[in-house]
Write a protein that binds this DNA or RNA. Structure first.
Lengths: 220, 220, 220, 220
DNA sequence: TATGAATGAGGCTTCATTCAT
DNA sequence: AATGAATGAAGCCTCATTCAT
């Protein structure tokens, strides 16, 4: 049973792409396990079972591998968000926030890694193009959220503060929720962990909601 | 007017300690300005106006300098916290949280740096002793907080969930608040920045308070 | 109209040879344009529109490609020289020198490249066989020239110094003329360039002539 | 017998500079012996008996070492030339040319190496500053020569062609003379070598002279 | 005591060559 | 026969740390 020539070529291409994904996955695992600055290209290659040179057939540099991880993650987060926004549009006001928290908390280690990567690559001119792409995706997500927030403010559901306050407060809490997973006081059993994250997510979903909080200004 | 021998020795010690502080301060500034992985010992020495070898008279290694920055910061945060706890004991329930947020948001760049440093040094055996010290300080702070939270729960002020939920939620939000300062969507004018941080701090101070939120469970 | 089997094979061989020439030509252009050490086999293949593996069907190594360029050039120079020698034999004493200069100055970039290649490959054992071939061609040329020079010395036309002095002086000047084309002080207009090269060639044609030079302009 | 502190510091600086010269010398020898592309920084360090890192205390990069060799050589050639120009000014018309040939032929291997280096570094942006310096020195030399040539043309000593023809022709012949030393037909005994180089130098000193050359032997 | 020159392990990247398809 | 993905030796350079002065 022979394969056609085009079929063979397709298979080859697929193997090539698979290998690319293998590199990403291996790099991702190593970066999460051993920390941003401890992982070398040689190690990625060796753990992926390929030669060092092969890595450079797929990526121009170590920075590009990292950048790719960031972009993949940003795209996946943005997609989750879009689903959440659609659900909110259909009348479920908490859906965006929930989607947002869920997508970020689905793999806290990855989320945290991506934060580290962003700090690391921020000033790296060699990936500025991809960084710009990433910012584009993010800006587009943020815009969708802000549009939605404005609607919810108009609808009297959210407190009337500058719309991005809501987004950024939510971002901040999610960020903190991610980090809390790595807090050393938090080596608890899984149940407790889930409970806490739900506790925090609930805060995220209600904070800024009109009426429910701040019946009294408690500060100062 | 000659100085006594002991006085001379005291002066010498003081100069030595001043120099040590100079190294710490210089390292701190460089680490904040140029990022964790870009700063070399040579640079610290040069910017501090001393020789590289001198740095090693004060610190065994680069990691020890970083560790020292962490310890200093942890101690200062713990002190602020103690003040807050005392105020809360005297009947101002929000004071701890406020103190906590204020101490962490007083210098977000430093707070963030210390987070980075912790990740960086977590697995570094050469500083495990100091890391243990740091954890001791932290555990002690956490214990004080949890004690207080338990009182507030008993007093019906805070929601009755495992006490450390309150602490960790608060920690998470503060963490997020720190990070939000470096969010690229957040290059706003100062006023807006202050407003947002107050918005977030207020959330921190009310979240978990009984009665005010969660009159309806909004999730699932 | 079907082709005979031998015809098909001939065509195939021709295509193979064409491809070989294509590789040589592409390599040559790249080497001249971008410099000896900047050109990679991958680049040659890509610019020639063939696969990297194919290059290795034609040449055992990168060094062999370079060697081939040298041999081709040496053969072509030797041929020009033979023509010049014949003309000199027929009574035109300047013809050899003129032919020699013209063949080397016809493409100074190529001549210079070949010099670079020779330095590069001199000690490369993997091409010592071909290098020996090249030396054979060269030795044969030199012998012809020396024979001729001896006749011209006997005939009282050239100064009576060891015959190879004349050849080597001529070689030196030609070498210099080639290099002068790349001298940075020499970014002149074309006219000036031509004038200078003629000036130098004239020197080459008269130098070592007995008694006097240039009482009459001897060229064209 | 103790040394003063300043004296100690001076010694230290001197040792540092000596080491720098050692690196240059070692690099020079290796480059000449084994060819431009075969020499690695590790090798230079090892042959100089120092660590690899030490090389980088003295030079920013391998290219800077090469550049330094070029600059040193250019400066030394320029100095020889100045002496020759002064002698010519004092009434010895051949002195410049003689000085020029002698300085270039004093160490043909070095001269040739510098030519190779120039080709290699021409397009290297990382040394463009030093390359500019080098060109400045060279331009200054060329200007002095052209001034002198103009005087000699006015004085009826040199043929009336564009002044830089004389310089470039001379340059070309010197270049060729250098290369001839490495010509494989030229593995002669030393005497023959000297004779040939004198033959060529004489050509250099008479070429372009008005009326006639070599009615008298003009050298030495 | 303070210094900074010296060190070399270790990181990233390139590229000639091989070989399975 | 043609291809190009895979390989890994080898090169350049950085920087934490040491140690002689």
């Amino acid at each position: 049973m022979t394969l056609s020539s085009t079929e063979k070529i397709r298979q080859k291409k697929q193997r090539f792409l698979d290998r690319e994904q293998l590199i990403i996955d291996t790099a991702l695992n190593l970066l999460i396990d051993r920390g941003l600055e401890k992982v070398t290209v040689a190690e990625i290659a060796s753990k992926a079972g390929i030669g060092k040179g092969t890595v450079y057939k797929h990526f121009e540099s170590k920075a590009q591998i990292m950048m790719r991880i960031m972009l993949d993650y940003q795209r996946s987060t943005a997609a989750s968000l879009r689903v959440g926004i659609e659900a909110t549009d259909k009348g479920n006001p908490g859906a965006v926030v929930k989607a947002y928290f869920e997508s970020r908390l689905a793999n806290p280690a990855l989320d945290r890694l991506v934060q580290q990567l962003e700090i690391r690559l921020e000033a790296d001119a060699s990936v500025s193009d991809q960084m710009e792409q990433l910012m584009d995706i993010r800006r587009s997500s943020v815009k969708s959220i802000n549009d939605m927030v404005e609607k919810l403010i108009s609808g009297g559901i959210l407190e009337d503060v500058p719309p991005h306050y809501h987004y950024l407060a939510c971002w901040a809490l999610a960020q903190g929720a991610v980090d809390v997973c790595f807090n050393r006081e938090f080596d608890d059993e899984l149940d407790s962990k889930k409970g806490l994250l739900k506790f925090i997510t609930d805060i995220g979903m209600t904070m800024g909601n009109k009426g429910q909080m701040r019946t009294k200004k408690p500060t100062q």
